[in-house]
């Protein structure tokens, strides 16, 4: 970010990206003004990368006044971990890691039969929030991702068990976010609630934000399960007659490697990706997440228990 002079004459209407950006920045600044110890959930996925970019702009030229928290499933894309560490070093940030593996090793969590660790993230997340006394936790969730998320407030109050009660949400009026809470409670804050997948990509293009390479077309060994291309790994694949093949793919979302699928794609640039998702007839989660296919209300159930 450099200082240049923009000589606007008559102020025109804000574009949709400007309006979304201004709203997200406002949310970051509200939290900085009203909470003692906020933290940004940072997975190295595109939504958390955009969140961090917005936070940096919100406080420019001062540093971001929050630490990062990565809930690490242990099933990581190496490129994503490299990216995470590079960003942390480059911007002089503080990173907390809550490790699912640690909880499995000390017996507090048990590996699921299907090998998926996405649902196991809740306990390490809540423990990290409690032990660090984080009072506001920024998440990159977007309402257009999923029908339970579509119902969530920007400031989402959680009780001491981290639980979300969709039937008793606090009214949220105008831009007057009420973050007051009792001891032991905390607030999940979703600064990019109103962004769509396409908005995120258009913003990445406009701001020239770097992303991990797995978001772009590359050759990869994959096997097919439930209509998705999964990466082989110690978490349980391929099994039986699942056959490993080499394909040209990219990832539309980045999550736990055991349940995040790749899509066939020749898109090598951000512009290619934008063109691709503008005509895609599948949602990003529908195309790439095995964990959401488990039941109609899988996300709502996980959120009730304290998931992101």
């Amino acid at each position: 970010m450099t200082t240049t002079i923009d000589k606007g004459t008559a102020p025109g209407a804000l574009t949709h990206l400007d309006a979304l950006e201004a709203e997200s920045v406002h949310i970051f600044r509200e939290v900085a003004g009203e909470f003692e110890k906020p933290v940004i959930l940072f997975s190295g996925g595109k939504d958390s990368i955009v969140m961090l970019h917005l936070a940096r702009k919100a406080f420019w030229p001062a540093p971001v006044p929050f630490a990062l928290l990565h809930v690490d499933t242990g099933h990581n894309f190496p490129e994503v971990i490299e990216y995470r560490d590079r960003v942390v070093a480059e911007h002089n940030l503080r990173l907390h890691v809550a490790s699912v593996q640690d909880f499995i090793d000390n017996g507090r969590l048990r590996e699921r039969p299907d090998g998926t660790r996405n649902p196991l993230q809740t306990v390490p997340l809540l423990e990290a929030i409690e032990s660090n006394r984080f009072d506001a936790v920024f998440g990159g969730g977007r309402r257009d991702e999923e029908k339970a998320r579509a119902k969530e407030r920007v400031f989402s109050l959680r009780d001491e068990f981290g639980a979300w009660d969709p039937r008793r949400q606090r009214p949220e009026l105008w831009q007057l976010y009420n973050g007051r809470h009792r001891v032991g409670e905390h607030v999940r804050v979703f600064p990019i609630s109103n962004w769509t997948e396409l908005d995120v990509w258009q913003y990445i293009e406009r701001e020239a934000i770097a992303l991990p390479q797995i978001y772009f077309s590359h050759e990869r060994d994959v096997f097919e399960r439930d209509g998705m291309w999964l990466s082989p790994g110690e978490w349980g694949g391929p099994k039986g007659d699942e056959e490993v093949v080499r394909r040209v793919v990219r990832y539309r979302t980045v999550g736990d490697m055991s349940c995040t699928g790749a899509v066939d794609s020749p898109a090598t640039t951000v512009a290619d990706v934008i063109a691709e998702i503008a005509v895609s007839r599948l949602t990003e989660r529908g195309a790439t997440r095995a964990d959401d296919k488990m039941s109609e209300a899988a996300m709502e159930d996980r959120k009730r228990e304290g998931y992101f």
Binding site: M1, D6, P11, A22, V25, W60
Partner: peptide
């Protein structure tokens, strides 16, 4: 006036 890192001459309703 700085608009998120860019100096500007003016800013309107809705801009952070």
């Amino acid at each position: 006036i700085d608009r998120l890192g860019v100096a500007v001459r003016q800013a309107r309703q809705g801009e952070s």
